[in-house]
Design a binder for these strands. Structure first.
Lengths: 109, 109
DNA sequence: TTTATCTATCGCAATATTACGATTAAATAA
DNA sequence: TTATTTAATCGTAATATTGCGATAGATAAA
């Protein structure tokens, strides 16, 4: 136990959950908002922006990288991170297909 | 440790993370998709739709209820669940302010 | 070369999540 | 009243997540 039973759900459901889960932490939201604000590669100074230790931030960056939301490139001694356009499009579509598929109807309880 | 340091982030960042986190499990995605497909109150038969035990599903419903995404009402011996229009609107706006705020630019790595 | 800088990873501890069976509680049906 | 049905909650076990300090590795600067 303690493990999500992914096998019992569709690939689409698992992918949605995976992406939303990656967004499900304030530090990762903060990282993404910072990258969006900069609107380009951000080299090095993410650690200065967050109230967490370097190792913890590195871990959060890794999680975002693993699901594809951001990508990183070595620039000399620094790492440059940015939003991955392709996955961001996937996220946008996924999100729209979920959110917009519900028509607000006021029919309920 | 093991606890998210919510105090160090803005209320908006924490709320976003909280909502995305609630969506970050395939069972909860499946529940929401089912409610949307029905497009009305769903009384009783959620347990038949998912490959998880009754108690586990009850827990997932509780989490969705806690962040406000769904609401439930007692109908006799059954529980009726549906999407909460108000929070769904909040979710929509939140997405706009995050997902749509990034203009794909191809400027990066 | 040596030193400084930056980031990933390791190891650990604390807490959270996932899942299930058993039980409880509440409403309906017999 | 006594079943029966339905869903929440309790207790427990296994695994995952969060966070940090310490360390390692790689590049640049002196």
């Amino acid at each position: 136990m303690g493990t999500t039973k992914s096998n019992n759900f569709t690939a689409a459901q698992n992918r949605k959950a995976e992406l939303y889960k990656a967004l499900g932490h304030p530090a990762r939201i903060a990282i993404i908002e910072f990258l969006i604000r900069k609107n380009s590669c951000v080299c090095g100074d993410i650690v200065d922006q967050l109230p967490l230790s370097q190792s913890t931030i590195s871990q959060h960056l890794k999680e975002l990288k693993q699901v594809g939301i951001i990508k990183g490139e070595i620039e000399g001694v620094k790492m440059c991170y940015c939003i991955d356009d392709k996955i961001w499009s996937e996220l946008k579509e996924m999100n729209n297909s979920l959110i917009d598929s519900y028509a607000i109807n006021d029919k309920c309880c």
